[in-house]
């Protein structure tokens, strides 16, 4: 079997490549060039920096596998960056890493497998692909603390059939130990947290360049409409955010909602953030069959899955949830098995 390993330059995909090689497969490593700044410069933060590509290349060389950098900057700009900007413009909470996984990493690479002469796509995600009675299934990774099945919840059974996630069976500690044992330079490398195309957490200068309208000043109001202060632009505010509101109040205040068309940020108390029902869009299921009824729903990358009922494009949580924001992805689970995913269109 010929395997294409998507190598980000991190420890997980490094070990994934090593494991496939050990298993006796023909392996090639690829890194996706997804973004370059206005002057063509490589990103300096996040998961796709030039030094990350260099790490990936060095690991591939150590494993003696061919390594390529594929340019997907166009696809990334259209499928991820423009969605990110659009989400902000509509007061939604963007999920660029999920969009990138879906529209670039998985969609493009899986569709391109045949032309690239490969049989399966391998990534370093912490999740597990298993075969079940109805086809391929996606399960949480063995390491619950590092589980990434949430970001893969949009994958379908046929896509999973051509995907291998070898580190999903391991804990992060085991992955690092394995990398050290193999002498891989990425063994002790820190995890990336930043969004790669924003860089160093600098939302303002990114938005200033790409979406200046989001830096339009506007009012900060409460639920009665009373103006409590002013802000320098809705870009950079997220529902549930507590810091940086510039409002002196006796008790903690949070961003409750954002109206980008009027450049208004609404703040309120903790209990104003509680949401019981959300409206969904883009629902997809692993099996390809419709999904409704009782599910466990996870709406944050590292949150717990909450009992809920799904039906008619709506999701009702059994208990009210904090800081559920439009734009976020919800993944549906049955125990450890992913049933599907959707995007929150509105909260009510």
């Amino acid at each position: 079997m010929r395997a294409m390993v998507a190598m980000s330059g991190g420890v997980d995909s490094s070990v994934a490549a090593a494991l496939m090689r050990e298993a006796g497969h023909d392996v090639i490593g690829v890194t996706l060039k997804l973004w370059s700044g206005p002057g063509g410069e490589a990103p300096t933060a996040g998961c796709c920096t030039l030094s990350d590509a260099e790490d990936a290349r060095r690991v591939a060389a150590a494993l003696d596998i061919p390594y390529y950098v594929l340019d997907y900057t166009e696809e990334f700009r259209e499928g991820v960056v423009s969605v990110f900007i659009d989400d902000y413009a509509h007061g939604r909470t963007p999920n660029p890493c999920i969009e990138c996984n879906r529209t670039v990493k998985f969609d493009r690479l899986l569709n391109g497998l045949d032309e690239l002469g490969c049989d399966v796509l391998v990534t370093g995600h912490h999740a597990r692909v298993r075969s079940g009675p109805d086809g391929w299934e996606l399960h949480r990774g063995a390491d619950m603390a590092k589980d990434q099945s949430y970001v893969l919840s949009m994958l379908t059974s046929p896509q999973l059939g051509r995907t291998r996630l070898p580190v999903g069976e391991m804990t992060k500690t085991e992955v690092r130990a394995r990398a050290a044992e193999l002498g891989l330079r990425t063994a002790a490398k820190a995890e990336s947290m930043e969004i790669c195309f924003v860089g160093r957490g600098d939302y303002r200068s990114f938005l200033d360049r790409h979406a200046p309208s989001m830096l339009r000043p506007g009012p900060v109001i409460d639920h009665t409409g009373e103006v409590l202060g002013a802000h320098g632009g809705v870009g950079g505010f997220t529902v549930g955010q507590r810091r940086g509101l510039g409002i002196a109040a006796g008790e903690p205040r949070y961003v409750v909602s954002i109206d980008a068309t009027t450049a208004t940020v609404v703040i309120g108390r903790r209990e104003d953030l509680l949401v019981r029902t959300v409206e969904l869009e883009g629902l997809s299921t692993v099996s390809g069959r419709p999904l409704s009824g009782r599910v466990e729903a996870q709406y944050r990358a590292h949150g717990a899955a909450m009992p809920a009922t799904l039906g008619g494009g709506l999701l009702h949580f059994d208990e009210p949830q904090m800081a559920v924001a439009p734009g976020q992805t919800v993944a549906f689970y049955e125990s450890d098995r992913v049933l599907g995913g959707a995007v929150i269109a509105a909260t009510g």
Binding site: S36, A42, L50, A53, P66
Partner: peptide
């Protein structure tokens, strides 16, 4: 990529520092 896998070295004529075709 396929040419390289088949043992033929060619180029896109211009490449960036990472080796990606531009």
């Amino acid at each position: 990529l396929r040419l390289d896998q088949s043992g033929v070295a060619a180029s896109a004529g211009s490449a960036c520092q990472s080796g990606a075709a531009k």
